[in-house]
């Protein structure tokens, strides 16, 4: 036994170099295309560095000035980072609340032996479909459908529901509502499938014994399903939040990058994107990125804990 152990150890040492060889491509690419740009991003955030017409200003070291600017009331009377963070949060919530409620409900329907739902594969296929659709094209579609001369207004007018076409893209409530609706449609199928897998992973005997004890379905849900599903629910919830922070394609295309009306649908990444456009304001963009990094790192810590849990 002792000898065997020794033998296998010497053997594994002789192969160790292959371990390094096999992971080299990953790390070389990671260093050049991700880590180095990330460090450069952080470095930039401490510099005044942008383009003004044909002139490039900087890079001049300015310490924390870019960060200060993000957190200071600007000429238009708001604190940039607060406004855009709140926009992002609101847009995420509008989509995520129905997304999680409906997904939870559907997951319970699909796993219920009492209901014994037929055609599950069909329903799952249909509700997951929007998740794979190009978000920018989906958003462009909504723009065309909900424009003042688009089919939705035509439909409402032909029904006599409205006399004048509704300017869906000119009002905060409808723009935010449409973005929420798109996010909901794109993600509730995905969430349903994940929660369903979670429920199916729960030991069947737990449900059996609860039923024998005379628990009704509400009690079973709150006392058994929900507590046992919690780790997966939290994982799905936090990954959804991290996705929400990265919200870009849908509002960007719907509002043509302008966050109309009055920047009420400008998300954090749209704000970042504006700095990377013509002005190439690497300093400010760097500061926004560092904040994004901090927020996602905190959230990721939870995900990391879940996936490394034994």
């Amino acid at each position: 036994m002792e000898k065997m152990k020794k033998l296998s150890k010497t053997k594994s040492i002789s192969y160790a170099k292959w371990g390094y060889i096999f992971i080299i491509p990953f790390f070389v690419v990671y260093l050049i295309f991700t880590l180095y740009p990330q460090l450069l991003t952080i470095y930039n955030s401490f510099f005044e560095y942008y383009r003004d017409g044909l002139n490039v200003i900087g890079p001049n070291f300015v310490g924390l000035r870019n960060y200060k600017e993000l957190f200071t009331i600007n000429n238009a009377g708001y604190v940039p980072i607060v406004k855009y963070s709140l926009n992002t949060l609101i847009l995420w919530i509008i989509g995520a609340v129905p997304q999680f409620l409906i997904a939870m409900l559907l997951a319970l329907f699909f796993t219920s032996t009492r209901l014994n739902i037929k055609g599950q594969q069909f329903f799952k296929t249909v509700i997951y479909m929007p998740n794979l659709i190009m978000a920018s094209a989906f958003s462009m579609l909504f723009f065309a459908l909900f424009s003042q001369v688009g089919p939705i207004n035509q439909l409402l007018q032909s029904w006599g529901a409205v006399n004048e076409p509704i300017n869906f893209l000119g009002m905060t409530i409808s723009v935010r509502g449409l973005i929420g609706l798109m996010n909901f449609l794109m993600w509730f199928g995905n969430t349903t499938i994940l929660l369903m897998a979670g429920i199916q992973g729960i030991d069947e005997s737990m449900f059996e014994s609860a039923r024998l004890d005379g628990s009704n379905s509400t009690q079973v849900f709150f006392n058994i399903t929900m507590p046992l599903l919690m780790p997966i629910f939290i994982y799905v919830f936090i990954t959804s939040m991290i996705g929400g922070i990265q919200m870009f394609d849908v509002p960007q295309v719907l509002t043509n990058g302008k966050g109309t009306p009055n920047l009420t649908s400008t998300t954090l990444i749209m704000y970042l994107n504006n700095f990377l456009g013509v002005s190439k304001n690497f300093g400010m963009a760097g500061a926004v990125s560092v904040l994004l990094f901090i927020i996602t790192a905190v959230l990721s810590a939870f995900v990391f804990k879940t996936i490394t849990r034994k």
Binding site: T34, Y36, L40, T41, N44, F293, T296, A297, S300
Partner: peptide
């Protein structure tokens, strides 16, 4: 390490990436 960097959004490295 790879698990830890898994959730970092690609947008976070965008500034440096574009600059390069």
């Amino acid at each position: 390490f790879i698990l830890a960097i898994m959730m970092i959004p690609s947008q976070v490295s965008a500034v440096g990436f574009i600059q390069l």
